[in-house]
Amino acid sequence: MSYESARVTEHQSEIQSAVSKVPAVTLGFWIVKVAATTLGETGGDWVTMSLNLGYLVGCAIFTAIFVALVAAQVRSDRFQPVLYWATIVGTTTLGTTVADFADRTLGLGYPGGVALVAALLALSLGAWYASERTVSVQSITTPKAEWFYWVTILFSQTLGTALGDWSADEDLGGLGLGFEIAALVFGAGLVVVAMLYFWTRISRTALFWSAFILTRPLGATLGDLLDKPVSQGGLHLSRLYASAALLLFMTGCVWMFPQRPATKGAPG
């Protein structure tokens, strides 16, 4: 084998190894994703509200967890389902606390919070595209691309939280739809994205990120429905117990649904 052929083979091996750390996008993927986003809402609220640590301390705690998990994910040489989904939960809990910090502590309100995080998400996607010339998950072939991927996921989770709160709540400039109606709205949005996926030729990358963002407000409103007081339209379940139940459900889904690495040409 020539030197150039060996280099090509080595490069292809590196690409496959990096791509294999991202799970295939299947129905099971989206079920686990919704469970993870719901867990992120109840878990984030448990730390900041039930433990009374506040949004700033919560942001600090979850930022440290997020950075540690992403660093472990980047260092890993293969797809590890438990590590991957733990990192996803890390982004959802941090996204919850960051959105609440912006909306409430900084006083931006829900419209201001949505605008700020949407701008940060657009900036992240733009920087990723400028660097890699694509924002497809299939472009994750280097540590730099992986960091772009996870930062973009973080902003998408944060935007989803802000959108869910803006739609469901009445205060802070919210639309006041209530948790059930808001969940139905975002669920319907996911159905529309699925229809576009199966019946149109719209960019699969654009549809992937649209669905990824929409699952977060769906999870946020479901999480609020579980743990908010009855007077606010919730079921007033313990945030700790709800989080534990969601973690068990999510763990069961990861075990039950096939967890295989994505391959070139897969959606997203």
Rank of each mutant, 00 (worst) to 15 (best):
67 V>H: 00
112 G>M: 07
122 A>E: 11
105 T>F: 10
189 G>N: 12
72 A>C: 06
51 L>E: 10
158 T>D: 12
85 W>E: 05
150 W>I: 07
251 T>C: 11
231 S>T: 11
221 T>L: 03
107 G>S: 11
157 Q>D: 13
73 Q>Y: 08
260 R>V: 15
72 A>P: 01
260 R>A: 14
58 G>L: 02
191 V>Y: 04
75 R>F: 00
168 A>W: 06
95 G>R: 06
265 G>A: 12
38 T>Y: 03
22 V>T: 15
186 F>N: 05
144 K>P: 00
16 Q>E: 14
252 G>Y: 01
24 A>E: 13
110 Y>R: 06
214 L>F: 13
127 A>Q: 00
244 A>V: 14
218 L>F: 14
126 G>W: 12
258 P>R: 09
72 A>F: 03
71 A>Q: 08
52 N>G: 11
177 L>M: 15
151 V>S: 01
19 V>L: 15
265 G>F: 09
58 G>A: 01
30 W>I: 04
128 W>F: 11
45 D>F: 02
193 V>G: 01
176 G>Q: 10
145 A>I: 11
196 L>I: 11
220 A>L: 10
57 V>M: 13
90 G>V: 05
158 T>G: 13
224 D>C: 02
197 Y>F: 14
128 W>L: 00
180 E>R: 08
210 S>N: 11
175 L>V: 14
254 V>N: 12
184 L>C: 07
250 M>W: 09
157 Q>T: 15
34 V>S: 01
240 L>S: 10
131 S>M: 06
88 I>D: 04
24 A>D: 11
231 S>R: 08
160 G>D: 04
106 L>R: 07
187 G>D: 04
159 L>E: 07
165 D>A: 02
160 G>H: 05
113 G>H: 11
45 D>Q: 05
98 V>K: 03
192 V>Q: 03
62 F>N: 03
122 A>C: 13
73 Q>K: 01
119 A>Q: 11
197 Y>G: 07
25 V>D: 05
225 L>C: 04
22 V>G: 06
171 D>I: 10
236 H>N: 13
135 V>N: 02
177 L>V: 13
70 V>G: 01
195 M>F: 14
82 V>K: 14
48 T>S: 12
89 V>A: 13
236 H>I: 00
140 I>V: 15
107 G>I: 10
62 F>V: 02
48 T>V: 14
265 G>L: 09
117 V>G: 05
85 W>L: 11
27 L>M: 07
115 A>K: 06
130 A>I: 02
72 A>I: 00
242 A>H: 05
126 G>T: 06
184 L>R: 05
233 G>E: 13
253 C>G: 10
202 I>P: 07
1 M>W: 07
29 F>R: 04
77 D>R: 12
28 G>L: 10
104 R>M: 04
19 V>Y: 10
103 D>Y: 00
149 Y>Q: 08
198 F>G: 02
103 D>T: 08
210 S>L: 15
249 F>R: 00
147 W>T: 03
66 F>H: 00
219 G>S: 10
31 I>E: 07
234 G>A: 08
117 V>S: 06
11 H>V: 14
62 F>M: 07
128 W>D: 06
35 A>Y: 05
54 G>H: 08
34 V>R: 02
191 V>T: 12
49 M>K: 12
211 A>M: 02
160 G>L: 09
182 A>H: 09
148 F>K: 10
150 W>V: 08
